[in-house]
Design a protein around this nucleic acid. Sequence first.
DNA 1: CTGAAAGCGCTTACAG
DNA 2: CTGAAAGCGCTTACAG
Lengths: 331, 331
Amino acid sequence: VKDKHVTVYDVAKRAGVSAATVSRALTGTKVKTKNQANIQQAARDLGYVPNSAARSLRNVSTMTVGAVFHTLSGALAIELISGLTSTLEQRGYSLFVSTAQGNDEQYDKLVHRFLERRVDALLCIHGAGTGAALARFISANIPVAALISQSGGYEQLPLFDPTISQAAKACVSRLKEFGHRRILVLHPGRASPTLDKFMATAQQAKISVEKQDIQPGSFNAEEVLQRARRSPAITAIIAPHTEAAQLCIAAERISLDIPKTLSIVALRDRALQVAATRVALSMINLDPSKIGSVAADLIVEQLSSGTKLKRKTAVEIGSWLDRDTLGPAAR
Amino acid sequence: VKDKHVTVYDVAKRAGVSAATVSRALTGTKVKTKNQANIQQAARDLGYVPNSAARSLRNVSTMTVGAVFHTLSGALAIELISGLTSTLEQRGYSLFVSTAQGNDEQYDKLVHRFLERRVDALLCIHGAGTGAALARFISANIPVAALISQSGGYEQLPLFDPTISQAAKACVSRLKEFGHRRILVLHPGRASPTLDKFMATAQQAKISVEKQDIQPGSFNAEEVLQRARRSPAITAIIAPHTEAAQLCIAAERISLDIPKTLSIVALRDRALQVAATRVALSMINLDPSKIGSVAADLIVEQLSSGTKLKRKTAVEIGSWLDRDTLGPAAR
DNA sequence: CTGAAAGCGCTTACAG
DNA sequence: CTGAAAGCGCTTACAG
């Protein structure tokens, strides 16, 4: 029992005006106040819902943005989508999400599919493949950007790149103020560009960095604390959030005063649930959703005002939270 | 420099046929073989890309599905999107993703927005709000389903509900076979419907369950192992993946033979990186993306053949992996 | 198997 | 401020 859809003509008839006037009233063009009211009432009565396909066909724009992921997994991806879609929604856009599931060919295919959808802009996350369809976007004047990383044919695209340089700088300068000259960095087995960035920043500031690799499973907090105490020069430990929390808890267990005898800084690099600590951890907090919202904003801006994207846009996703576990260097 | 878009008419002219024939050739209706070839060639030469907005306007369907999330975070959400979109892509559909960011009113608004988009189907994840726009979907004969949970006006919708009953049953029957009569369940602080389900299944099978709450940070594997050994009746431990891995590693450290003296079963309830164990963990593996792919499949089926959804569709997301750490009960 | 024509629902110059 | 008309790009009865 499919209802025939209510159209502007139906609304027009009921409001006693022409379809053109209905369209104007509904899209915000000035209309006689009385007509405005009648039309709105009629639209409500009839349950009129504009058909965006028709609107898209007439106008140039579809008010949609496509996002193509190379793979769809992990905390970063979800935060990215969240940042993208919530920002786009506010601007009246809808977001298409798709994933190539690790397949480069499929990636190219999906990009091409969004050409048919006539998306107003395209976002390529970890874009990989030949990028054959990209030229079409360019010649149709549709903005395309890469997010996080790019390879193959997607290397030419303007890139949105997450960074924590501000937060790292803020943290490091606080460390300096407090007189820390040598710190221990607990590094997880997997690659951690953020921790690497942090270490580089510290070293630039002439803080010497000792790096210790840890295994998620076999991490022994007490051992690390003891070891840090024994290395006389070390006055602070930087660690991923989970490990930093465990250090705090262990410190309490062995009555080691944080931050009096040792400072601890966390790098909150995932939306992980972590054991509660009694004191508030000083930390570099990471919010990857920012890269989504910044990218969305700049893309929408390009759409409305034609501002071109830079070859590379660094998006600060870090923030420095100066709380309880970082204090003056003990020695 | 916006190119005028290439249309079926352009292709028709170049191929020396009518637009109607081009349309037929491109949508798969039988056409003279020679024309077919000419048209395909012409389309390629001109770089023709069909406009799906025009197609949507003409046809009833848009080949899009909308997904509205109450909040967009966590491993479940990303797996859901992944399952949905990869399945839909295969069927030629595109997925709109949006999030209400925890706001019920916004949720209703987003649902309404997908009405304008004329999505062919709507998926409400953790739907909450009045559901005012839902009636429109129903009367327009657009399938709507709820995923995972539903409340407020969304309670009437057919629900896709994740379950692990099959996997739990398989695991429990294996435990029985091996003669385990009393097991220890390590329960994380947070709610875990899956672990709860497992415990219920075990108890139904007359396996007695001892539950121990653990804190992610202060978990001491050796202590747990010692304690389990002391409780004479306990022959197996069930734990979340991370903890199970830590137990295995600790067991090795204290030369406790797994599964000879004690069996360990993991519940892999997230896409977590976990310490490598030397032996392969016996585990109930959870794949939440299945709920996405099953929902997508059934929705598409409803779209093509009109099969109505059941009030409630339980989607088994668990699978039992019978590996090395579960063996005969030691005592 | 094919073409001419109509129509999906909207918006916007154009002329009043 | 408003209406009649054209047209966005496609597909599908309809008649050949």
